[in-house]
Design a protein around this nucleic acid. Structure first.
Length: 964
RNA sequence: GCUCGAAUGGUGGAAUGGUAGACACGAGGGACUUAAAAUCCCUUGGCCUUUAUCGGCUGUGCGGGUUCGAGUCCCGCUUCGAGCACCA
């Protein structure tokens, strides 16, 4: 039995006197966690007198499996930083919440009939329990849950604002839709420069002549949140559409169901309008290069030229997009995407049958098949286009290697200088015409943008005043062609982005309902004062028989415009009562602006108040996994930019610094069963037998040694298992795999905390390796961290275990040791290099132990330094030192360089890497003085081995190199 | 295919261009103990030399280069990981 600091009824100098027994982390951690909660130690308020600092973790989706040891990695890292900043005098916001809407809860509901709200609530409680045991400095008063009406009120509100906005390209900002309507009423589409789905043209008179439905349809072309007939990723397995980032290699990220392309009417967000701002913003934020690169790829800006081609013997004209306008003289055919509307126009009657068959065949192929089987296919349309520069006829083909959704869905093919065109030309025997001097196109195309142009045009094609690229470099040629195309009105310079608009509806139940009703087919926003529109209760979570989303089961799901209330569907009369939208919003809706809500979580008048927003501004440090690079981190930036245009958010970029913590992988253990027996052979001997490796629960393995008895009891079939041991032990094999239940390699933080304490867990997770690196969890090394914590504890006690602190002045060595630590830990925290600071703590505690240091001054600094890492033991020791306040507010120690200075430094004078002699210099000797002294030294005398010294190099590590 | 990143002992990993392998695990040896656990101390990249000390050589994926000096910088490869991918 042991107790930690046992309080004695006896005071000395106004301070509580403690009697220390043993380090009982269970009692200490429980005590402080309860006290922090009771006293609201981590509550934070806006405080203009102190600088703010906003630390944020990507909030978790509370899954049924609970936390494993990998989840808290980022939370611990950010908690250390938050606590450090607080000790440095910052007013630190460090909130936590739950991304509570999502597919797994709903899938579970479909299987079990349990309401997702209940399972979600249970999961959240479990998460909270686990999180509380780790000792985080979260301000739980600011907790948000995306599934709560008080929260999704503002998700719906933002959606309505997006619906009522369009994007003006000229002012690069979202504008109220009324402005656009005004423009239409005055000038129609004339002079319009706005983000749009397709280019429309109408006059003011035509606009005025439209009925409500037509006007609504036209406006949809411009709204930032709009309904569009778009190609979507339809996932039949999940019964919903998915965003591009939710689909990988033709299957859904969740569940791995096949995904097909389907045209459906869907809510979309015009993220593409913000493509340039999303790209530009990357230069202003402190994110890793790799994640910025990923976003740049995803945005996919490409600068090129759009050119018009006339169709021979027809007045049809079509536009292509190319980044290689310089290769116009090498065009030998054109290609249309099979889905392109031009296909119908350009197909000649003779070719119709063949083209129809091809288009039908392409349509049948899923995305997945296209990726898996990338053979060259295509069909001739029968038409010819006219090359605007040479006047040549070029055949127009149709092939699925051209995508309808990118550019104009039509290309000019230059097989000599594009590998895809090359493959197509080879397959169909089309001409390949090289344009760059010296390039060899007999085996493959020459795609590089380098070399000198030729045959552009060919001698027989040269015309007076025509474009001539011969002799120019490729880069010059691109510029020259652009200029020519522009001047001669053959087309225009165009920037294309690969970034597509986000599909914003899901045919699911467990998500935010759209605050939209349908007034005679026209989607209409419910009045702002009616928000939030609450998710109705339903009893069946599967889609309806008629294929409607699950909300189709809701009885009370109609909107009465008179009473402004949600009413029963039976009352729908399409006069005052209208049906409500049945789709719900996707997962990223709730997670796109949650960082703003934390600033002012209880505000029921606004998403965030002006005061709160202008105090906290943006997240200073954001931590989360890099898997959100193309999802959440794009949507969130988009959402924030929109809110900035609205004047709600003050800053352009929501997350100024981003750290992507690595994944903690599992370290699986294996036992080796000899085939067709129940005998298991130890790792070192397994090669002598024919064995099958079997995953074994890592919780019955310690340092790769199997607990044989526990193994027998693990599963009935192993009850009578036999073992072939080596040195009396059964050694398991191991491998690094994803941490998952099926591999029996999940390590639960609760188990670690029960055994070693939260402080040890925190230290160990940081010690494991660099924060941003993925690494396997290996419980084996944790003893070292636990030993360190105990050693540190022992610094404060004597042999009997009593508190033993001296008020004597510390020795030089003691001060040197602690100041070395102050320097190192401060630098390391700023650089998020926590693993090396843990090492520094170990060194310092070892040094102080060796010095038997018990000086109050030194130990006080030590406690302050360890506080962010191991807050429980720090708080306990802080009180033991007689402090009344919490260690969280203990001022971060100041580093004093003078303690590290030595009186004199011994330099090794070396030549060719070997020490010849040594010299002592005062610590503050200049380089020049050292050089002069070396040259003047009797052993050197300006010569080494009889040769004159040319150069003396002083390096700051007590070495002088001599060069001859 | 394009882009980005990485490669260091038995393991995880340290090293502003300056004594490579900090710190920890594991392993080996020792102390304490009836014994075990716990704790503490010593050794621990490889090779050679030596009774031991002292010492020497070699060594950061491979090949070059810059430098008095390269794990670090430059050029060319190899392997692994990540992102994008018929994006014209």
């Amino acid at each position: 039995m042991c107790f930690c600091l046992k309080l004695c009824n006896f005071a000395r100098q106004n301070e509580t006197f403690y009697e220390i027994m043993e380090y009982d982390f269970r009692a200490i951690e429980k005590k402080w966690q309860e006290k922090w909660a009771k006293e609201g130690t981590y509550r934070v308020k806006e405080d203009a007198s102190r600088p703010k600092y906003y630390v944020l973790n990507m909030f978790p989706y509370p899954s049924g499996a609970g936390l494993h040891v990998g989840h808290p990695l980022g939370y611990i890292a950010s908690d250390i930083y938050a606590r450090y900043k607080r000790q440095c005098g910052f007013n630190v916001l460090n909130p936590m919440g739950y991304d509570a809407y999502g597919l797994p809860a709903e899938q579970y509901a479909i299987q079990t009939g349990q309401h997702p709200a209940i399972t979600t609530e249970n999961n959240i409680n479990r998460y909270r329990e686990q999180l509380d045991k780790i000792g985080f400095s979260f301000d739980w008063d600011r907790e948000v849950r995306t599934c709560e009406p008080g929260y999704y009120h503002w998700t719906q509100w933002a959606f309505q604002k997006m619906f009522n906005s369009f994007y003006c390209n000229k002012c690069q900002s979202a504008q109220p839709i009324e402005k656009l309507i005004e423009h239409f009423e005055q000038k129609g589409t004339e002079g319009l420069d706005v983000a749009q789905s397709e280019e429309l043209e109408f006059t003011a008179a035509e606009w005025k002549a439209m009925d409500d439905k037509q006007k609504s349809d036209v406006l949809m072309n411009y709204r930032i949140a709009y309904q569009g007939e778009t190609m979507v990723n339809w996932c039949a397995g999940l019964g919903t559409v998915l965003a591009n980032d939710e689909v990988v290699e033709g299957v859904s990220v969740r569940g791995g169901f096949p995904v097909e392309q389907k045209k459906m009417r869907q809510w979309c967000l015009r993220v593409s309008a913000y493509a340039q701002r999303l790209l530009d913003g990357l230069d202003k934020i402190d994110w890793s290069d790799s994640i910025k690169e990923t976003q740049r790829n995803w945005i996919g800006r490409s600068e090129g030229t759009e050119m018009q081609f006339h169709v021979k013997d027809s007045d049809i004209e079509f536009t292509i997009f190319t980044t290689r306008a310089d290769t116009i003289f090498g065009v030998t055919f054109m290609v249309l995407a099979p889905e392109s509307e031009l296909v119908a126009q350009l197909t000649t009657p003779a070719q119709k049958k063949e083209v129809d068959a091809y288009v039908a065949a392409v349509k049948k192929r899923t995305e997945r098949e296209r990726i898996a089987d990338r053979k060259v296919t295509g069909v001739f349309s029968g038409s010819y286009a006219i090359n605007p520069l040479t006047g040549e006829d070029v055949p127009v083909w149709i092939s699925d290697y051209v995508l309808a959704g990118y550019g104009t869905g039509a290309i000019m093919a230059v097989p000599a200088h594009d590998s895809r065109d090359y493959a197509f030309a080879k397959h169909f025997g089309l001409e390949i015409r090289p344009l760059i001097k010296g390039c060899d196109v007999s085996e493959e195309s020459f795609d590089a943008k380098e070399g000198i142009m030729m045959n552009s045009p060919r001698p027989d094609q040269i015309r007076e005043g025509g474009l001539n690229l011969n002799g120019l470099t490729v880069k010059e040629a691109i510029a020259a062609t652009k200029k020519y195309v522009k001047e001669n009105k053959l087309g225009r310079i165009k920037v294309n982005y690969r970034l597509r608009d986000a599909i914003f509806s899901r045919q699911r139940y467990w998500g935010e309902p759209f605050p939209v009703y349908y007034k005679n087919g026209i989607p209409t926003m419910i009045p702002e004062e009616c928000l939030p529109l609450e998710l109705p209760e339903i009893s069946e979570y599967k889609p309806t028989e008629t294929g409607e989303p699950p909300l189709g089961h809701a009885q009370n799901w109609a909107f009465d415009t008179k009473s402004k209330k949600v009413v029963s569907k039976s009352l729908i009369d399409n006069v005052t009562v209208f049906p409500l939208e049945l789709n719900t919003m996707p997962g990223f809706a709730g997670s796109s602006a949650y960082y703003l809500r934390y600033m002012d979580p209880h505000n029921d008048k606004a998403l965030v108040s002006k005061e709160a927003d202008s105090y906290w501004k943006c997240v200073d440090l954001y931590l989360g996994g890099s898997e959100h690079a193309t999802g959440h981190l794009i949507y969130s930036r988009f959402w924030n930019k929109f809110l900035k245009d609205l004047g709600v958010s003050e800053v352009e970029e929501p997350f100024s610094k981003l750290i992507n913590q690595g994944m903690i992988q599992g370290r699986s253990n294996f036992v080796y069963r000899i085939k067709d027996t129940n005998t298991f052979v130890s790792f070192g001997l397994k090669d002598q037998y024919d064995t099958t490796p079997i995953h074994v629960d890592v919780n019955i393995v310690s340092a790769d040694v199997l607990d044989v008895e526990a193994f027998k009891n693990w599963r009935p079939e192993y009850n009578n298992a036999e073992f072939i041991l080596e040195n009396g032990k059964y050694i398991c094999g191991w491998a690094v795999e994803k941490m998952s239940k099926s591999m029996f390699n999940v390590v639960n933080p609760d188990v670690i905390i029960e055994r070693y304490g939260a402080d040890t867990l925190r230290m160990y997770e940081m010690f494991l390796g660099p924060l941003e690196q993925s690494k396997p969890w290996d419980t084996n090394g944790i003893d070292g961290c636990h030993r360190f914590i105990r050693k540190m504890w022992n610094l404060f006690t004597d042999k009997e275990g009593n508190l033993n602190i001296s008020d004597d002045a510390p020795s030089k060595d003691e001060l040197k040791s602690i100041h070395k630590l102050i320097k190192k830990v401060t630098e390391d925290i700023e650089n998020f290099s926590y693993n090396t600071s843990v090492a520094a703590f170990m060194i310092c505690v070892n040094e102080l132990s060796a010095l038997k240091c018990n000086k109050r001054v030194v130990l006080t600094d030590l406690v302050k330094l360890i506080a962010p890492f191991a807050p429980h033991i720090a708080e306990e020791l802080w009180q033991a030192l007689g402090n009344q306040t919490t260690v969280c507010d203990a001022q971060w120690p100041k580093f004093d360089e003078s303690y590290l200075k030595e009186d004199s430094i011994t330099y090794s004078i070396s030549f060719n890497g070997k020490t010849r002699f040594t010299l002592d210099f005062p610590a503050d000797a200049t380089q020049q003085e050292i050089q002069d002294a070396v040259l003047a030294n009797e052993k050197a005398q300006g010569y080494i081995d009889g040769k004159p010294i040319r150069k003396v190099i002083v390096v700051p590590r007590k070495i002088v190199n001599i060069v001859i």
